[in-house]
Simulated scan of single mutants.
Amino acid sequence: MNELDQTLAAMDFDFLGNGEHAMSVDGMRKAIGNEHFLFLDVRADKEKEYCDFPFTKHIPLHELPSRLDELPKDKCIIAFCSSIFRGAVAYTYLRANGYAEVKGLAATMEEMVGAFKPGPLTKMQAS
C-alpha cells in the first residue's frame, strides 16, 4: 500500500466525525500569529490578486508538487482555498507526502473575510 492509499484508508467515519482534520474560522483567529501554524493558500494567482491574506504562504495547488520543499514538516499546516475543495486536495497530498500535522480550513472565503471586519478584528487583536 502506498502513502496515498494509507492516507485515504485512514479517512474513515471516525476520522471524519471527530473533526480533528479541520480548523474553523474561530480556530484560525486563535492560530494567527502562533509560529507553530502555517496557513497554506492554494488558490490560483488570479484569485490571490483580488483577496490576499498577509499571514499565509501562497503556493497554488498545481505548483505544490514542485514546491513541497518550501513547507516545513515541524509545523501544523492549514490548507485553504476559495471553495474548500482544493484545500482538501492539498490536505490529502500533504498527508500522503509525510506531513503529519495538517488541517483543512473548514470555512468559505466569505467567512474568512468576515473574520477581519473591524469588530472581529478588534476582538482578535485584544486577546
Rank of each mutant, 00 (worst) to 15 (best):
A88L: 14
A88R: 11
V89Y: 07
V89P: 01
V89M: 13
V89Q: 14
A90N: 05
A90K: 01
A90W: 07
A90M: 04
A90I: 02
Y91H: 13
Y91N: 05
T92I: 13
T92K: 00
T92M: 07
Y93T: 02
Y93R: 01
Y93E: 03
Y93L: 13
Y93F: 15
Y93N: 04
L94W: 07
L94F: 06
R95I: 03
R95F: 06
R95H: 07
A96E: 08
A96T: 00
A96S: 15
A96P: 00
A96Y: 07
A96V: 01
N97K: 08
N97P: 07
N97W: 00
G98V: 05
G98N: 11
G98P: 08
Y99S: 06
Y99F: 15
Y99N: 10
A100K: 15
A100S: 14
E101L: 04
E101T: 14
E101V: 04
E101H: 14
V102N: 01
V102Q: 02
V102R: 01
V102M: 06
V102A: 05
V102Y: 01
K103W: 04
K103I: 00
K103A: 02
K103C: 06
K103H: 06
K103E: 04
G104A: 13
G104P: 00
G104K: 09
L105S: 11
L105K: 07
L105C: 12
A106T: 07
A106H: 11
A107T: 02
A107F: 00
A107I: 08
A107M: 01
T108L: 08
T108C: 02
T108R: 09
T108D: 08
M109C: 03
M109T: 13
E110D: 15
E110A: 12
E110M: 09
E111V: 03
E111R: 07
E111Q: 15
E111I: 00
E111N: 06
M112V: 15
M112A: 05
V113G: 01
V113F: 02
G114T: 03
A115L: 03
A115Q: 06
A115W: 00
A115I: 02
A115D: 10
F116A: 07
F116K: 10
F116E: 03
F116H: 08
K117V: 04
K117T: 13
K117G: 11
K117H: 09
P118L: 04
P118W: 01
P118A: 03
G119N: 09
G119P: 00
G119D: 13
G119T: 10
P120L: 08
P120D: 09
P120N: 11
P120E: 12
L121D: 13
L121K: 11
L121Q: 09
L121V: 08
T122N: 10
T122Q: 12
T122H: 08
T122A: 14
T122F: 11
K123Q: 13
K123G: 10
K123M: 13
K123C: 09
K123T: 11
K123L: 13
K123D: 13
M124I: 05
M124T: 02
M124H: 04
M124L: 15
Q125G: 05
Q125S: 10
A126I: 00
